[in-house]
């Protein structure tokens, strides 16, 4: 589904990703771990289409097509979803209105008909229940005044609503207490499916206690320096990143 080959990315002429390779197939969950500044968030952002990054080499194929040919919103239409580390607060934009606009934009782009308000309300109420959220958050403005946990849960709600093929989770665990983390992980686990791939970017292993990955990759200085299964994450938890980064530098 996602094939990243020798990807090189710079921000203001400073190389961040320096030849990254990754293959993700439907149904798989990949965890990308790594120390701060290793390029984890850059990877998530560039896949989702955020401005400010320059691709200086390599390629990314999504369903066999060049991902960088697609505009940000076209990637969403094609089934890519980024759950953000810092979901923004949108003053004056009603959450329900936003969620409906998002879903219908994607439906229209796919040649499906828009949902009416009645159809949408029925659907969103199911999804709210699915992720264990309070309906009152639908009436509020997007993320405005939400706690960290509520914001992350609102991201998972969007993921449940939009049913992406490829979900990118950028530091979804950051800033969450253990209860909030469990709730968010619960939502993610319910969304595991044979048709859906997930790439989870995280600094800490603890999220992986709740979401079990098929593969764990260690990103350091813009490259994946080690890949393995979930036991690699436990090893990292124990030893930290030092032994790996030294090993790769040697």
């Amino acid at each position: 589904m996602l094939s990243i080959k020798n990807l090189q990315v710079a921000v203001e002429d400073k190389p961040i990703l320096k030849g990254l390779n990754l293959e993700v197939k439907a149904g798989e969950i990949h965890a990308i771990m790594g120390p701060n500044g290793s390029g984890k968030s850059t990877l998530a952002h560039i896949l989702a289409g955020r401005d400010g990054y320059e691709v200086t080499g390599g390629e990314v194929l999504y369903d066999g097509k060049d991902l960088f040919e697609l505009e940000t919103e076209e990637r969403a239409h094609a089934g890519i979803f980024l759950a953000m580390q810092y979901p923004v607060e949108l003053a004056g934009v009603n959450n329900t209105y936003f969620l409906k606009a998002s879903l219908n934009a994607i439906r229209v782009a796919r040649g499906e008909k828009e949902l009416t308000s009645v159809e949408f309300m029925k659907l969103i109420k199911e999804k709210v229940k699915f992720v264990g959220m309070d309906e009152k958050f639908l009436k509020r403005n997007v993320n405005a005044g939400f706690s960290g946990g509520e914001k992350k849960r609102n991201e998972i709600l969007q993921m449940a609503l939009l049913e992406p093929k490829l979900a990118l989770l950028d530091e979804t665990d950051s800033g969450l207490d253990i209860d909030a983390l469990r709730i968010v992980a619960d939502g993610v686990n319910k969304l595991r499916s044979p048709d859906r791939a997930m790439v989870i970017v995280t600094h800490y292993q603890r999220l992986l206690d709740y979401i079990e990955p098929d593969f764990v990759h260690v990103l350091s200085d813009g490259k994946i320096i080690k890949s393995g299964d979930k036991s690699l994450a436990l090893e990292l938890e124990e030893k930290g990143y030092g032994w790996l980064t030294e090993e790769s530098a040697a």
Partner: peptide, 30 residues
Amino acid sequence: LDPDHIFYLRSRGISEVEARKMLSLGFANE
């Protein structure tokens, strides 16, 4: 308009034109 806000909406499938409109109306909402 904040580019991060526009990116957020576009990453949810909303076109740039529509995103700018939504955020502008949001600004006027009060």
